[in-house]
Simulated scan of single mutants.
Amino acid sequence: MENKCVLIVDETMPLGAIANTAAVLSATIGKLRPEMIGRDLPDSNGFMHQGITTMPIPILKGNGPLLKRMRSQLKEFEPDLLVVDVISATRTTKSYEEYAEVLKESPEEEIEYFGLALFGEKKLVTSLTGSLGLLR
């Protein structure tokens, strides 16, 4: 089975928030799916470089309402589909503990999503995201 990973990020955010959201999603996916990361590689002088992802990770464009709708719809595909989300509380909280508290206390209808990462069977991921354009 061939897997695919994509990120969907709210394109209406400032560039720094887009970059940070993509970084957080990527770090979490790398932790949860370490098989995505290749072995360390030497350069021509024998200096070792840390392994990087062995698969492309396209960043697709979305917006808040799309991300909210998608996050709700993706629940039916879990746990076969790995879904990671970043919510707006990341910009207002100062610690992970504070973030956890805000997430726990927030009613689902009030949660705003900045980005989603999907990792799973290629056909499924493509069927869920194939209509989304690349973030450029």
Rank of each mutant, 00 (worst) to 15 (best):
L116D: 06
D85V: 09
C5A: 13
P58T: 05
P65R: 05
N45K: 10
L103H: 12
E101S: 12
D80G: 07
G133L: 14
T12Y: 11
K61P: 02
L74A: 01
T53L: 07
G120M: 02
M13V: 02
S106C: 15
L41M: 15
L118I: 04
E76F: 15
V125K: 15
L32C: 06
L74Y: 15
G51M: 06
T90N: 13
I111W: 11
S127L: 06
Q50I: 09
G130H: 08
L132M: 09
I8L: 03
G46R: 05
I57E: 07
G30K: 00
I87Q: 12
R69P: 10
R39Q: 08
M13I: 03
E121I: 10
L135D: 00
Y113R: 14
S72P: 03
T53R: 14
N63T: 13
A23S: 00
G38P: 00
F47H: 15
V102E: 07
F119C: 04
L134D: 05
N63M: 12
L67S: 00
T90Q: 08
A23N: 01
E35W: 13
M1K: 10
L82A: 02
F114C: 07
A17K: 10
M55F: 15
L74I: 03
V83L: 10
T54S: 05
E108N: 15
D10V: 03
S131M: 14
L81T: 02
P107V: 14
N3L: 12
E109A: 11
I111K: 08
V83W: 13
P79Q: 04
E101I: 10
G130P: 04
E105C: 11
S44L: 15
G46V: 02
S44P: 03
L81P: 03
R33V: 08
L132S: 04
E112W: 14
K123I: 04
E11D: 01
E112P: 11
V84F: 11
D40S: 12
V6L: 01
M1E: 04
F114Q: 10
M55Y: 14
R33D: 03
L128R: 06
A19S: 02
A17P: 03
